[in-house]
Write a protein that binds this DNA or RNA. Structure first.
Lengths: 143, 143
DNA sequence: ATTAAATCGGACAAATTTATCCGATTAAAA
DNA sequence: TTTTAATCGGATAAATTTGTCCGATTTAAT
């Protein structure tokens, strides 16, 4: 569904939402440890997210990362879009370049329903929604 | 969403449903041409589908492929499962091995709804449903 | 000033997916 | 019986994704 990079990206953002709700900077090392991801690879993904303004970074000793905006204002679709692009939101289920309402592929109509539901879910779910579950211990980010 | 191999697999099966509704054998060459896919790679995928009994093959001159059962009895979930496995039906949205109802990841509940809808769609859509649209010219398999 | 701890970016490496090549086998047709 | 046209499977190659390494830069603390 999502690329590995995207999975790490989502996890990193959720972890950041939790660890940095007060605006505190969190280091790459802490983030990677909290989501059990490879550090160097995670660094690349954080750079992508930074360039899309989804997070903010500070260089130098005592530097680190924090969210680019408030938890409530960052939704999953922004993260997925930043890393995997919008193919998942608009692309054809069979990979046809020219598939459209006017020239639909065989599974277009059935697929579109599901794809649109996925899109709506990702657009309506914010980091605030997700970090809450972690806080109260009803969801888990590791293993 | 689906792997390239799976996209080719679905297209090949739809094409076969159309070209071989009377039980006629269709050659790899014809299949690949009809879906504009690389011949050798498509051959590999057809072998996978054959091993799962989703299609049947005949070797030798005048050989080829035909569906393993009637169009009405083959659904998309079988094809997707045969090629991409069932990760897409049951896997965690964040790739966590141990994610479950009992120990859900942060996006588990939201993701499950969409994943289940995708599963239901793939299970309820048969090749018969799809080849019909091609026949009457309301859907397209190329480009 | 020097050191230490952090981000940043480019180059590289490994793993997986996608794709090709070719020889072996099979079976119909010449 | 030879040729031809097809599937089958193994080896290999190319492309993409995933992951690592390291040097440069930045900034706080010593």
């Amino acid at each position: 569904m999502f690329s590995k990079a995207c999975e790490y990206g989502i996890k990193a953002m959720i972890s950041l939402a939790r660890q940095s709700s007060d605006g505190r900077l969190v280091s790459l090392k802490e983030i990677a440890a909290s989501i059990e991801s490879p550090e160097a690879f995670t660094a690349k993904i954080l750079q992508q997210l930074r360039k899309q303004k989804l997070l903010h970074s500070v260089k130098g000793k005592a530097g680190g990362f924090k969210l680019g905006s408030r938890q409530e204002e960052i939704c999953l679709s922004q993260i997925v879009g930043a890393i995997d692009g919008d193919k998942i939101f608009t692309g054809c289920g069979l990979g046809l370049k020219t598939c459209s309402e006017a020239q639909p592929c065989p599974i277009h109509h059935q697929f579109k329903v599901v794809r649109d539901e996925l899109k709506a879910m990702l657009e309506s779910t914010t980091l605030a929604d997700l970090s809450n579950g972690l806080d109260i211990g009803t969801t888990y980010l590791k293993r």
